[in-house]
Computed example of a mutant assay.
Amino acid sequence: MSETMPVIDDLREESEELDRLVGELSEGEWALVTPAVGWTVAHQVAHLAWTDRRALQAMTDPDTFRREIEKALAAPDSFVDEGAQEGAARPPAELLADWRAGRKALDDALRSAHKGARFPWYGPPMSAASMATGRLMETWAHGQDVADTLGVIRPPTDRLRHVVRIGVRARDYAFGVRGLTPPADEFRVEVLGPSGELWTYGPEDAAQRVTGPALDFCLLVTRRAHRADLAVRAEGRDADRWLDIAQAFAGPAGAGRPPKGAEA
């Protein structure tokens, strides 16, 4: 079995933070519409519960999970929404209990995974650490949708490092999913973490550079805010292009968020 990885602990803390936001909501508040078009608070939590179940299935029953991949390939633009719709139709208390139980089961599976094990996923196979990182990124992003809906300002934490890292590593995917050729050269990415530490990626002398606050970079790569509203800056044509299309998640990018003041 693998040693406990910090990212698993961070995933638990990220999930618990969102749980505190939704745990005491009324039925009417679960039905509030979030910035994701057509999705309520219930849809957001239902999506997380659905994806946690898929991650657990990938780790414990990979053959069955591979059949889920086939379903996703057959309906790439709708399979995620279908999972969220099904869960959101349930009573909020039942949905919340399901999400909590699924989180606990996945946490146990991640902590007991054998070192070096790889698990199937909708993209390349993933290690337990990568699986946890992906789940943390999604939990944070969908939690942001819920927080925005409820008018809650969440203080950023250094858990954002995981979101930054996956966003940086997904650079070539963001180009490729749009039919574009990824840049040949590495970029330099420098973002300032909430605790004041500078997180850096890529060669120091790279001609293409991206800089800014970690929170803004995470909002950008999860497509939770429009680039025009964020303090993320690019030097170089390729880096500038990347900031227009960056995404830290697999699948279609979606419409993203309009600039503040613009009509959705």
Rank of each mutant, 00 (worst) to 15 (best):
E186G: 07
R233G: 06
D158A: 02
D10T: 07
A93W: 07
R209E: 13
S130R: 14
R67Y: 00
L106M: 06
A132F: 05
D158K: 00
P182V: 10
P203M: 11
R257F: 04
V189Q: 02
G254C: 02
H47Q: 14
A31I: 04
K104F: 11
W50C: 01
P194S: 11
L106A: 06
E186K: 11
A58I: 05
E29F: 04
L96Y: 05
K260I: 15
G116R: 11
E235H: 10
V221F: 08
L110Y: 01
G23R: 15
L160C: 10
T60Y: 04
Q247A: 07
A117T: 07
L160E: 00
L18T: 05
R223Y: 08
L11H: 03
D158F: 02
L95R: 07
H226V: 10
I245E: 08
A117M: 07
K104M: 10
A117F: 03
R233P: 06
G123T: 12
G38V: 08
S130F: 08
A75F: 08
E29R: 05
C218N: 02
A239R: 04
R257D: 07
I245V: 15
R159G: 03
L136E: 02
G202R: 09
G167K: 02
D19E: 13
H43E: 01
D63L: 05
A46H: 01
H226G: 04
V22H: 00
A255N: 12
D77A: 15
A31V: 02
F187A: 03
A74D: 09
L11R: 00
P182F: 04
D52T: 00
A72V: 15
R111D: 11
V41S: 02
V33W: 08
G256S: 09
P182K: 09
T133L: 14
T181W: 06
T211F: 10
E86V: 15
Q57R: 12
A101D: 09
G176H: 12
W99K: 02
E138F: 06
R20L: 08
A129P: 08
L73G: 06
T4W: 04
P91A: 09
L110Q: 05
A206L: 10
V221D: 01
W99F: 15
S78T: 15
A88P: 05
L106R: 01
A117C: 07
T133E: 10
P203E: 13
A246I: 06
A234C: 14
Y122K: 04
P125Q: 13
R223V: 04
H226Q: 11
R223W: 03
A42H: 00
L32T: 02
R171V: 12
S78I: 11
A207M: 07
E17P: 02
P252L: 06
V80D: 01
H47P: 10
A101W: 02
Y201E: 14
G102D: 04
G151F: 07
T149H: 07
H43W: 04
E263W: 06
P125T: 14
R233M: 15
E14N: 03
A42V: 06
D205W: 02
I153T: 15
D145N: 14
D205H: 07
H162V: 12
P125N: 11
T149C: 10
P156R: 05
W199I: 15
W140A: 00
G193V: 04
W99C: 00
E27H: 03
A231W: 00
F65P: 00
V221E: 03
L180A: 12
G236P: 05
G143W: 01
D205N: 13
A31G: 01
A117V: 11
A132I: 09
R165T: 13
A75C: 04
V232A: 07
R233C: 05
